[in-house]
Design a protein around this nucleic acid. Structure first.
Lengths: 333, 333
DNA sequence: ATTGGATAGTAAAACGTTTTACTTATTAAC
DNA sequence: GTTAATAAGTAAAACGTTTTACTATCCAAT
């Protein structure tokens, strides 16, 4: 069964292709097509089940009603939840989302951007990584709306939506200190991206403001892309060799690995050792004892992203960049 | 900066568009283009950074090098992990994946299929839901490769990759019985899809084979799309009103909700009550005590899906349908 | 009875490729 | 020295839309 084209509809209705196109695109009234013709053509379209070929449409118009979403890792619940929310909201406005993971690999990220470019996506939502500055700059130069989220890249003038990582970390550490903890550890990664460095800065500043001297032995930076087993080994060593009474994990997957390690040891989480994780996860709620977590307002973040990008897409002129930063909250468990 | 087209390259090289196209597509030797010209054009392409417009390409050729992946819910870790694996593997073969969630909503699923259709995706990987039979049939009639996974739809002749849900459930229940459990509960959902009904069948058969009489009060079917709070309330009622010594949760999100409920009660999971969850999740590993889980071989499933679809894509003739069923394993914790 | 503005509609170019069928020049074979 | 095959390359159609610029008719106003 050959798929129908606009031409088939035109022939069937005995009108020109142009007329059908106007009707499909709701421009019929503007272009003074009679009600009778509109009705007839609409009827034929409905009965035949004709659907415009989006590829041809994109080729002609240069846009696609698709927004490209580039994230770190779809299997991380923070990202998959954001993705789901964004998808939902975009869908309601007639946009489709296509998403893909970078796995913090610059080459893959660049290829994704190129793929999206050649598919003529209308806008980009990106949780960026270092090394993408030029490519993103290029997108902006092409006049494409770009929203960065979760993390921003220094030196890049663009829209950004995220949470206040510095403050959240600061407050987490402060809450440890108020509990009387002195030897506070930070487990983070070595990705050089603002959202991660802000967490280290918040950690340092909180210590400093409470006259605790920064001890780099208490900080573990694991290499981003390494195997979980290696990460666990490093953590195991940290907990074995360094005395700590509290630990902040800078991402939820680090916290999960850490909890696995701690489960094997005789450290009593919650008694000997207080734990806070960054980005909430079901694991933390169900863990015995419950694990406190920094929770970013996913719903608000997703909403802000969508608002921002839709506004850009519908505006003919370049709008001013906006930086929207939400406070994160600490769920004490 | 206007984006380059094949024409620009042709002009720059002083050759025809055709020649450039042949070179881009690796057909130059076949079409007897001289080495000198090939080199020259390739150089210009490399230096200019020209990338073919995929939209135009798709319009002309009718395919897209894109595979559409339709799943239930990207924020469920089972699906996000499968998605990630499929994406990785497809990527290595030069295919891109675009995925989207149905949320078990037939209308949304149909729209997704239509969207993918109008974007001319080359093949479909679908975890189907009831009500999609006709649409899938239509895809098959159009000659598009379709792989169903996780669940199949009765009456639909197509490729399928999944795990042996009946057997896994049967063995789970059997393991409860071997531990001396008698009042074994099943918490499942009311989605009418083979993968779910197989779990109920496995449950019933295991009881029967061990001379335990089936008691429908022990089976809770929660409505798929309801709020988690309502689900929890139903579970709370089940555990309060019915005496059980073991429970099998038919999906991981049900198990997670169930564990949250149990945490509030004085039921001692692992002592008073044995628990097995379907589809493993980090929560279960970290839970105290560890929660046993049925683990599907995600890697193998993803690999089989990709193999199957790539084989279909590269074959000119319609291949025989294959049904690949992997055993699932029970992780005892 | 001419002008001018609606009204109703259409022809054809354009978007950027791929591919078929064609041309022209060169070489090989007899 | 003709013929046939090969080498090297190209013109133009086609994919399915959108959109610009155009035509033709009708009516109202002068």
């Amino acid at each position: 069964m050959k798929t129908l084209s606009i031409k088939d509809i035109a022939v069937e209705a005995g009108v020109s292709i142009t007329t059908v196109s106007f009707i499909i695109n709701g421009k019929a009234r503007d272009k003074s097509i009679s009600e009778a013709v509109i009705k007839k053509v609409e009827k034929i379209i409905a009965e035949s089940g004709y659907k415009p070929n989006q590829i041809a449409r994109s080729l002609r118009t240069g846009n696609s009603n698709i927004i490209g979403l580039i994230i770190e890792d779809i299997s991380n619940s923070f990202f998959s939840r954001i993705a789901r929310l964004i998808e939902d909201k975009a869908y309601k406005k007639g946009y489709k989302i296509i998403y893909s993971s970078t796995e913090n690999n610059v080459e893959k990220a660049k290829e994704l951007i190129n793929m999206f470019k050649s598919r003529k996506v209308d806008g980009y939502i990106i949780s960026p990584i270092k090394g993408l500055e030029e490519d993103i700059q290029q997108l902006l130069a092409d006049g494409k709306p770009v929203i960065l989220f979760d993390r921003s890249l220094p030196g890049l003038e663009t829209n950004y939506v995220g949470a206040d990582h510095f403050k959240a970390t600061y407050e987490s550490i402060e809450s440890f200190i108020k509990q009387g903890k002195k030897k506070i550890s930070l487990v983070t990664t070595d990705i050089d991206v603002e959202q991660i460095t802000a967490r280290l800065d918040g950690y340092k500043k909180a210590l400093e403001d409470h006259d605790i001297v920064y001890d780099e032995n208490l900080v573990l930076k694991v290499h981003f892309n390494q195997e979980e087993n290696e990460t666990k080994a490093q953590m195991e060593e940290l907990f074995r060799t360094v005395e700590t009474d509290a630990v902040l994990f800078a991402t939820n997957y680090l916290a999960i690995s850490g909890l696995k390690v701690l489960k094997q040891t005789n450290v009593k989480v919650g008694k000997n050792l207080s734990v806070i994780a960054y980005d909430d996860h079901e694991v933390f709620e169900l863990h015995t004892p419950g694990i406190s977590a920094v929770q970013q307002p996913l719903e608000e973040i997703a909403e802000a992203i969508i608002q921002l990008i839709l506004r850009q897409l519908s505006s003919k002129t370049k709008l001013d960049n906006e930086q929207i930063v939400f406070p994160a909250k600490i769920i004490q468990r």
